[in-house]
Nucleic acid binder design. Structure first.
Lengths: 122, 122, 122, 122
DNA sequence: GTGGTCTAGACCACG
DNA sequence: GTGGTCTAGACCACT
């Protein structure tokens, strides 16, 4: 199910983009699968249709979905471009985090331990 | 030098807080060292004094600096509390990043490589 | 074969018009050749019959096909009028493109190179 | 001046994006120059602020401008990324046009003539 | 004052 | 029915 968390500080449309992207990457949403229509999702989530439309627009720009006026919105069949972008961003973010940790006095060994702990969880 | 980047999406006052905190932790700003006055820094950076004042307020609240009425603002003697807080935050942020990377398909080995590369830079 | 691409931002009926026009001009569809009926094409392509009918209507208006009540739709004998229209449009579109390229700093020599490359392909 | 044409079929926000991009590339708008505020431009053009904001958002995503909440929107100092993207798009569009022209029976010589005519105009 | 987000309600072309 | 665009009006954090 697609959800949003009102306690989360990120804008609703960003949460939608992130959640749907993740579901598409993980295979929870399959290529060519139709997403709920803008209005449908809007009423079922109690959110304004404009906000949903904005999220769908972002997702289309990123290549996660494609929208056809008069038909609906669908998961893209080729997510490789998006997946690559995502990995780039995630690695860059990680590098920044590592750099910060280093400057805060966290040792390299400690970092490796954290990677191990976090990677092998659940 | 204290700098801000207007293209950075973080508010100016947050950038100031982050930069001054980092400089204090790294020793670039030494304990008891006096910071420029709000008005001084405001004109020298072309920033609204309210923004500087807000940043100084945050820094004081976090224990990075202390202010003496009529004398000015100074770097705190003991930054250990702040340093601990910082490490906690930085590690938590890292864990989130690692988790994201894992979900995006980045291997544990790759993560270790990144840690090494980034930690041993410059 | 007649195809449409749902990711294409042009309406389905426009894609049909363009594709069939192109096939008629290139000789892939020959004068007097009969097109599939609206219903036939609709089911074989999984498209709403209204959409096919709209495309056929456009094609008839442009003189690419003609319809005989009770018999079906056929490629026109004389496509010269349509061909001229098409050339006009294509040249105008090209002029706009050249103008844009010029304003973006693409050199005249580069344009000539592109024309050569593209014209001599396949 | 920033203008829109209501007879133009492109959405208003796209026209704004195109016009401002072009003005930035041509140097009519200079790096660091402040754009009219969203509300200001909205009233002066008789357009809803949301539409202006959408255009500014697109421009920021493309790297043509950067927006600072509480300060305003400004032309980027480095437009090279955007310029490269633009050239890529314009060349691709041109290739499609050339291909279409070729298929419509326009000769290579004719294309070269058109390039010459159009490039040396005004 | 600034930009960013969200809601509400409307109209359009397309299928 | 669908998505896309636009208007109107509101609230927020930041400067």
């Amino acid at each position: 199910m697609i959800t949003v968390d009102y306690k989360d500080k990120r804008p609703i449309y960003v949460q939608l983009v992130d959640n749907i992207s993740t579901m598409a990457l993980s295979g929870e949403l399959k290529p060519f699968e139709q997403l709920p229509s803008v209005r449908q999702l809007a009423v079922s989530m109690g959110i304004n249709p404009n906000t949903i439309a904005r999220a769908y627009g972002e997702l289309e720009r990123k290549g996660v979905i494609y929208s056809v006026a008069g038909k609906g919105s669908f998961i893209s069949n080729d997510l490789s471009v998006f997946a690559e972008e995502k990995i780039k961003k995630v690695e860059e973010k990680l590098r920044v985090g590592i750099s910060e940790a280093k400057n805060s006095g966290v040792s390299k060994e400690r970092l490796i331990v954290i990677v191990g702990e976090e990677y092998d969880r659940d």
